[in-house]
Write a protein that binds this DNA or RNA. Structure first.
Length: 428
DNA sequence: TCTGGGGTCCTAGGACCC
DNA sequence: TCTGGGGTCCTAGGACCC
């Protein structure tokens, strides 16, 4: 049988331990050693090499609770280096785009591919070819899961990653084989079923993927959502989630961050909010969008004893804009309306909503074009400079200079692939 | 001392209308 | 004695994903 347009086959390619592997590609001294990468602010563990997993470090575990383990085993610790990971991701996606006719970049480290014009017998070979190509060209190892629905491709990928005998590639097209693997698939690991729903199913004596496929549609719709029903159909082999080769337009663009230390002064808070607004506005302009609504939120430390405060305020912006100074002025006003003196704040964020393409705004609001063009040219110039020099060197004075509230990043590696002065050095 | 950030989607419930 | 019901829009909150 040959898969043609209309026949569904999905190939999920997922990088193993992506962030930790990126660190290792440029630092051979890390081969075979346990490596972990931390979240922003050096708070939690967000990526672990195979060795680190074996030592018992959990995903999303706070670092401070694992200091002992990290010290005892000489585990190498890195702050997140998104410039490096983003660039490695682009390289992987470029390779995959050349290999398959259609690609959906699903996240920084995974993509779904289609397999049009290929026979069922060729699929495993194709999977192995992808595996080899990415390995040779980037030094990163991927797992490949192949199946008739996206959710089953995720299941295949799950086993390809964990069981060495598959060599990183598992093709699930045979119904008996699918049932066999589903019977060994823990519910909480199924795409779309989180911990919460898994617990619900356990109480109903449903313990694995195969049992879930046997549940009745009526029952699922009654107690859960249509989303869960879709997941169940996908597990039964009926494809409900199509390949999205064109990225959907964003509904909101946000930037939020925990502080390196508590912030209680309004002046410092204003700097942080200005900095987050500038970041959002930059992302906005990169995508050729403007925002018609802005939201600001601030929060105290949720982990501390005592009351937790989270306050948000939002407002419409007319006409919609992508100009940093305008957005910052609105954000500052909103901040003042929710800020309470005397509280120790730990986190703040800015969210831009009601996104509208820039061209549309100009067409609709003809009379504003002239007066906006100056600020638009300024924005373009700043963005171009920062992009070209790959730094955020041009910033707004409102962001402040010292940034005493800035997040901790004590273990950052170099930007090996995007900065000449940070290239890897090979010694003869 | 120390616990991420950026998204999506669905549902419930209130307001409002006819 | 008697107190509708259906549609729509909005928002807040929750679950989930990576």
């Amino acid at each position: 049988m040959v898969f043609e347009k209309g026949d569904k086959i999905f190939i999920l390619v997922d990088c193993n331990n992506f962030y930790a592997s990126c660190e290792r590609v440029f630092n051979p001294a890390l081969r075979g050693k346990p490596v972990v990468v931390l979240s922003n602010n050096d708070g939690c563990i967000v990526a672990r090499s195979a060795e680190a997993k074996t030592l018992g470090l959990d995903m999303a575990a706070p670092v401070f609770k694992n200091r002992d383990l990290i010290g005892r085993h000489g585990i190498k610790v890195y702050s997140s280096n998104y410039v490096l990971y983003g660039d490695m991701s682009r390289r992987v996606m470029a390779i995959l785009s050349r290999l398959a006719p259609e690609i959906e970049v699903y996240s920084i480290d995974e993509a779904f591919l289609s397999a049009v014009g290929m026979s069922a017998r060729q699929l495993p070979d194709f999977g192995r070819y992808i595996h080899r190509a990415v390995q040779q060209q980037t030094g990163l190892t991927v797992s490949v899961g192949i199946a008739p629905t996206k959710t089953l491709a995720k299941v295949a990928n799950h086993f390809a990653k964990r069981h060495e005998q598959h060599g990183g590639v598992l093709c699930l097209t045979d119904p008996a084989m699918i049932r066999d693997y589903l019977s060994r698939m823990p519910l909480a690991k199924i795409w779309g079923i989180g911990r919460r729903k898994a617990r619900f199913f356990e109480r109903q004596r449903i313990h694995n993927g195969l049992q879930l496929t046997a549940a009745s549609d009526r029952w699922i719709k009654k107690y859960l959502t249509v989303m869960t029903l879709r997941t169940v159909w996908e597990l039964r082999g009926i494809s409900c989630i199509p390949l999205e080769t064109v990225p959907a337009h964003k509904k909101g663009i946000g930037s939020s961050r925990s502080f390196g230390r508590d912030v209680s002064r309004l002046a410092e808070m204003e700097e942080a909010v200005a900095a987050y607004t500038a970041r959002c506005a930059e992302k906005l302009r990169q995508q050729g969008l403007t925002a018609g609504h802005i939201q600001v939120f601030i929060a105290t430390d949720a982990f501390k004893d005592g009351p937790y405060y989270e306050n948000a305020a939002g407002n419409g912006i007319s006409p919609p804009t992508a100009a940093t100074p305008l957005l910052t002025a609105r954000a500052t006003d909103l901040l003042k309306s929710v800020f309470r003196p005397g509280l120790l704040y730990k986190r703040a964020g800015v969210m831009l909503l009601d996104l509208l393409p820039q061209v549309q705004v100009q067409a609709d609001l003809f009379e504003h074009v002239y007066q906006n063009s100056r600020s638009q040219r300024l924005m373009e110039t700043i963005d171009r400079y920062n992009r070209r020099t790959n730094s955020g060197k041009l910033m707004w004075a409102a962001e402040g200079m010292g940034k005493p509230w800035y997040m901790r990043q004590a273990h950052k590696s170099r930007r090996f692939t995007t900065r000449w002065d940070e290239l890897a050095v090979a010694y003869a």
